[in-house]
């Protein structure tokens, strides 16, 4: 099961809507071995394509060095499908190379750039085998308290 804070879920969906009709992509990093998706990191889709995504190779290195320095790993690897369902394609399966990650797929085919409906699903992809899993959204923790002005 993937557990995500509401704030992170919203950020992934917003990124997918913003980049539609191109695919959006990114990761949510967390402490190594913790399975806690904590740090949202949107990435540029270097392919700039409605049917393909790829992190830029220089940004990929910077990302992994940064995660290494923080003892983090990619807990979530997300990308959007903009004309098809939120299910891993053959390409997605063939290229999946983070056996510990939750692969999140967001489909914007119905809502496009608008606030319309999105499909948001999560999978494990290990050795070419796809296993869908439940997604639990938790209220964003530790919302800063502010004096109410209502």
């Amino acid at each position: 099961m993937l557990t995500l804070a509401q704030e992170t879920y919203d950020a992934i969906v917003a990124h997918a809507r913003r980049d539609h009709p191109d695919e959006a992509c990114g990761v949510v990093a967390g402490p190594e071995g913790s399975d806690r998706a904590e740090r949202f990191i949107p990435m540029v889709n270097a392919a700039g394509s409605p049917t393909f995504y790829e992190f830029d190779s220089t940004e990929l290195l910077a990302l992994y060095k940064d995660m290494d320095a923080r003892d983090e790993e990619p807990v979530v690897v997300y990308h959007s499908h903009t004309a098809t369902e939120a299910y891993p394609s053959r390409t997605d399966i063939g290229l999946a190379s983070e056996p510990n990650a939750h692969y999140v797929l967001v489909s914007t085919r119905d809502g496009g750039n608008s606030d319309g409906p999105v499909e948001f699903r999560s999978y494990r992809i290990v050795d070419g085998v796809v296993t869908e899993e439940d997604v639990t959204i938790t209220p964003t923790a530790e919302t800063p308290t502010r004096a109410s002005t209502d």
Binding site: E23, T84, S89, L95
Partner: peptide, 11 residues
């Protein structure tokens, strides 16, 4: 030397 698989895929 650092080896990193691409993070990539497609619809």
């Amino acid at each position: 030397v650092v080896v990193l698989p691409a993070v990539a895929g497609g619809a």
